[in-house]
Nucleic acid binder design. Structure first.
Length: 227
DNA sequence: TTATGATCATCG
DNA sequence: CGATGATCATAA
């Protein structure tokens, strides 16, 4: 973690300047800028936009369990918007460590830390727009309001209670108003270690935290009011 | 294998 | 037509 990419922004201002260069680019433009090529098909390129934006902005590539801009403490998320400029999908936050979820407090929960400071990069994801023509929007540097933080913590407490009781089988995506739990795996047959309701070691489907579209929608609407 | 980046595909 | 559960790609 000692080595930083040469393009990594040294300040928030530099990061925002780079975001400004990004705004308005089509996905075809983005591919050219990052010297990559567009996915052969949208279904084969699910994480492509996020990856290319990371590259463009000089984020740390790869799957490290730390912020994308580690020196700035900022997490990067691209946000697909539909024709109504509303989030089209939920937003993945992080993997859930089922083996060590006891004794965790909200203050030092991984999901909380990730959401402390997020750079949202919205872009057009409506299927009515040809994939190469979809454009990147203006980035939003966001920190949760007291109310948002409280709502997230509430959901988290509810979810963690069930997880700690070994009730991950009963835990569906219906739980939580803004923060939810969903499968996070290559497919439904993938298994990872966990504890069952009796505290015995068992195997279960890996899970991750996601933000519901309603929550991210409030973030971009909040930014409209500021602008 | 586990983490990251997410969207797809189906169903109510 | 939105949400849930399933799935695709890549890095280390």
């Amino acid at each position: 973690m000692e080595t930083k990419p040469p393009l990594a922004p040294l300040s928030v201002q530099e990061l925002l300047n780079n975001c400004h260069k990004l705004a308005g680019l089509s996905l075809a433009d983005l591919a050219k800028q990052t010297h990559s090529s567009l996915p052969v098909s949208p279904s084969k390129g699910k994480g492509w936009v996020g990856q290319q934006v990371e590259t463009f902005l000089g984020a740390t590539a790869g799957s490290k369990a730390e912020p994308d801009f580690v020196n700035l403490g900022i997490e990067l998320k691209t946000l697909p918007l539909n024709a109504k400029s509303r989030p089209q999908e939920s937003t993945y936050v992080c993997h859930i460590q089922l083996m060590q979820l006891n004794k965790q407090r909200w203050e030092d929960a991984w999901v909380n830390k990730k959401l402390q400071h997020v750079l949202w990069v919205p872009y057009q994801a409506s299927k009515t727009i040809p994939y190469p023509n979809r454009r990147i929007g203006n980035a939003i540097l966001w920190q949760p309001s007291a109310q948002q933080a409280q709502q997230l913590q509430q959901d988290w407490e509810e979810i963690m209670e069930k997880l700690c009781l070994g009730e991950q089988q009963e835990l569906s995506a219906h739980c939580g108003q803004y923060l939810q739990v969903r499968p996070k795996a290559a497919n439904s047959k993938v298994l990872t270690n966990a504890y069952d309701d009796k505290g015995n070691l068992c195997q279960t489907l890996p899970l991750g935290f996601y933000l519901r579209p309603d929550f991210t929608r409030s973030i971009i609407e909040q930014s409209y009011l500021r602008a």
